[in-house]
Nucleic acid binder design. Structure first.
Lengths: 152, 152
DNA sequence: GCTGAAATTCCTCAAAG
DNA sequence: CTTTGAGGAATTTCAGC
């Protein structure tokens, strides 16, 4: 159960680290008006409390050879196994996110693949593995994509 | 036009930086068997070539006060302005991603908000701003969510 | 909680092979 | 690409408030 952000200082730290995950303690200290040590202690606490889950490099999907993205909606053929589906899909590296949803489908996946052929292969394997019907929406263009930011 | 990843070493570097965006050059050097200087040059090249777009901290959305996520599908009421829609939506900080898609809708958004009431407000504003009909799918649970990784 | 300072590690750049 | 070295910068740790 993750905490809320305590105060304005933590919120500022989180904002800055979302904008630049490699911001130095010195930079953060200057922005907050605290000492480097104090900032370090706060950031450490945000990390151990799970507010900051980690730091990642954002890689261009095309450079990875994954230029094609798609949403795949899943409808279980056997509703009894509904809750097991995410576990069955965790191995597929092509799946970037897996959301259980309220709506026509039970689950919505966001996937990245190398080609239309790879998408077809993935869809078939997901159907078989999870025993689901699928409905796929191909992404034509990603207009923008960004990290959730603290609401000012 | 972003380059492909050149070789196995660049792929390994990218993988490691996706797993830990704060990995030190020394760590990367040990994993690749290269010198720190060589790794530094490679990472720099990946950055300037746009393969590495940046580094970000991943923040727990709940800690930010944004526990509710949803997909919103947009259908333009006036198809002539189709291509302008993403620009009109860029200011909404609640919108995490905006994809143009092939399917029933023209555009699919992924959004994070504080509450059902905030979701309703957002939907109304999106409709008005972009002159679209909307179809919203509420996320009940995010089973997993991860960065695209280089396919082994 | 915070500060400040010392000790350590890391980054950056250059030179030379 | 490698190694080396030097200078600066960042991180860590710890004493003290």
């Amino acid at each position: 159960m993750p905490r809320q952000l305590d105060d304005a200082t933590d919120t500022l730290l989180a904002s800055m680290l979302v904008a630049d995950g490699r911001a130095t303690l010195k930079t953060l200290a200057e922005a907050t008006g605290l000492s480097v040590s104090a900032v370090q202690a706060r950031v450490r606490r945000l990390e151990t409390d799970g507010v900051i889950r980690g730091y990642v490099a954002q890689i261009d999907p095309e450079a990875l050879g994954l230029p094609l993205a798609a949403f795949i909606s899943l409808t279980p053929l056997d509703p009894r196994q509904d809750y097991e589906i995410p576990d069955l899909l965790a191995d597929f590296s092509e799946i970037e996110s897996c959301h259980s949803v309220a709506g026509d489908a039970s689950i919505v996946l966001f996937v990245r693949v190398a080609s239309p052929a790879a998408l077809e292969t993935l869809i078939r394997e997901v159907r078989k593995r999870a025993n689901v019907a699928t409905r796929t929406t191909v992404v034509l263009q990603t207009c923008f994509e960004r990290q959730a930011r603290p609401p000012s």
